[in-house]
Design a protein around this nucleic acid. Sequence first.
DNA 1: ATAATAGTGTCTCTGAGACAATATAGG
DNA 2: CCTATATTGTCTCAGAGACACTATTAT
Lengths: 254, 254
Amino acid sequence: MNKNQNYNSETEFFKNYDPSKFYRPSTSVDTVIFTVFDLALQVLLVKRGEYPFKNQWTLVGGFIDLENDQTLEDTAKRKLEEKTGVKTPYLEQCFTIGNKIRDPRGWSVTTVYFALLPSENIQLKTNSDDITSSSVSAVKWSPIKNNKIKESLAFDHNYILEKAIERLRNKVLYTSLPAYLMPEKFTLRDLQTVYEIILDRTLESKSFRRRIERANILEPTGETRQDVKRPAQLYRLKENIDTYFFLRNIEGAT
Amino acid sequence: MNKNQNYNSETEFFKNYDPSKFYRPSTSVDTVIFTVFDLALQVLLVKRGEYPFKNQWTLVGGFIDLENDQTLEDTAKRKLEEKTGVKTPYLEQCFTIGNKIRDPRGWSVTTVYFALLPSENIQLKTNSDDITSSSVSAVKWSPIKNNKIKESLAFDHNYILEKAIERLRNKVLYTSLPAYLMPEKFTLRDLQTVYEIILDRTLESKSFRRRIERANILEPTGETRQDVKRPAQLYRLKENIDTYFFLRNIEGAT
DNA sequence: ATAATAGTGTCTCTGAGACAATATAGG
DNA sequence: CCTATATTGTCTCAGAGACACTATTAT
């Protein structure tokens, strides 16, 4: 005996199909938005304006707009742009967590993305209409120290953040991802410093330069940056360049 | 003006919380179950017994049992065990696809896992009670040739399969994953052959053996397998061993 | 000239690929 | 012994790390 009715055709099946009769888990999207400034990897937090966890900090996220979002990635991008006012040069799906206990409202599934933003030109929407009319009451960057932030986040967001940092750090060992964290123009030393901040250790500059040269993702602007000492060549990211995957990891780190 | 009511406490919020008033996307889990036999990577397919796509082949999947499944992974394992009758030694979350168009019933999100099963001892539940009482009318293995199978699957399952194969092939370049596809006892040549089948190219045996030795995941059983020619040492996977990650990829492949 | 940082030369080491050489069984 | 397959020896090569050395600017 089949628990479902029998239909003679797909057309007939749809005539009788009522989506509301199936109870479904709640589904959301959360994005770990990274940037680098003040010599630290930073993550964007928002303060919840509603229950549950009202007034607690969380990652940037929200529910799918079933009318207007065509894909999960649309949801992630929409929320990211609402909070930062910019489009991200890099967005990657990280993982999905779904279980009975992560949300006090019941079975909940969240798909986690991570985004990399250049630190320049980010104007947080702290006091704009966007914020005051939304479910969020504040936005801020929080620096990551020892793979953690000092805030205790709502839901399982500290865990999500930890896993996302782990993914980022691991991927930095064999990709050119940090290039997406750089401003328009930067020196090779700047880029190396960003790698070093994420990996939390110093790198050999010769070895580092060899890798970046091999990746062939940068072009010199022709300009130099003049500090107090020897000027350094400025580079920009080439256009329409894919992330480079190295065949060998940076070694020494886990 | 906030679109939500104002509550004075979290307790009060929950007293008024009704999950059914939010429309939610459909959420499912699909698992790409791989094994290797007949010199080919094989994927498990089931034939749908219900609309939509009645009588078409699909990957193994289904909806979350909100009562009994504690996590998404529980759902994946439950479905896998229903169809194969065994527990998988390796299950990894692959990615999540969510969009408006993948399911004719509307907005749908599916989290895709992939599993690796040893080819020995799999007794498909083709004619058991499990099958006849479920929404599935048949189960079979389909060999992968040129990253594709000959069947045209329901929903976006051909696309999902293609991406899962890509992930598996890529990961095989720097991990010991194929070890999970091996029977209880096997020779190094057997393992190399499985690598070769997945990567679809031959490998250098010296180089391959060096890698496996370095990974330190196998122990000799002491026995040898006697074919017609020189006997080969039999190995088994050490217990409680994690997947080994090599610092360098197998080269030459993409 | 000196200090400080940018950038290069070059040696060593590890592990991948190539391929020749050796080992062990059945016939 | 011959053949086929298992297993090892060993050479070359790419790219990582180490570290000394050179280059360019301000002071």
